[in-house]
Amino acid sequence: APGVSMGELDRIAQNIIKSHLETCQYTAEELQQLAWQTHSYEEVKMYQSKSREVLWQQCAIQITHAIQYVVEFAKRITGFMELCQNDQILLLKSGCLEVVLVRMCRAFNPLNNTVLFEGKYGGMQMFKALGCDDLVSAVFDFAKSLCSLQLTEEEIALFSAAVLISTDRPWLMEPRKVQKLQEKIYFALQHIMQKNHMDEDALAKLIGRIPTLAALCTLHTEELQAFQQLHPETVNVLFPPLYKELFN
């Protein structure tokens, strides 16, 4: 154990789980009710007939909306707010999209490969007009693979925090402090997963998803840069300011 009492671990875990439940954008119950409400054939057709710029803007707005909940999630994590402001900003800037992608598995239905988007569930074909089929299919595959691990809300909460409070970020001012906190979070997560999962490799499989998570974020940045070269005005005028600040 990283020199920490079970009491402290439990406090850290409960604080993170509470923060997650308060800021998860959709409760598990809401998602369950929405799960089988899918976009109609006409609605999907409508998405497919949108211009590339319009659909890119809509996705940027939805991503930014989700990121604001992630910022709120971070603000309620005691250990995160004890970090210096430089590192708080740096961890959020480099990790917020990764947390959104982890959280997205909650809003993904692996039975019909649909994801919640603008109020209803829809498949990959809904995003055809974006012109980013590789990114979209990779995101869907990631969500499906995370769903297959059948994580509980507590496990999603702790894993999200461990992804956010990461030592793999350059320019951290207090890397040791970040590392100690991340270790405690992973230790708490390991403890919970050993209880909940027969498969003793469940945590290893979960951690094994992190490189893909990072790759998705890189691909998102590349697709944004490509899109921006063609439509600089659209990004400049129509994209949410926070999205531009984070990804531009």
Binding site: Q68, V71, E72, R76, I89, E245
Partner: peptide, 14 residues
């Protein structure tokens, strides 16, 4: 730099 993120972190929890 990161004016918006900085302000979001400063604001009282919404």
């Amino acid at each position: 730099k990161h004016k918006i993120l900085h302000r979001l972190l400063q604001n009282s929890t919404s």
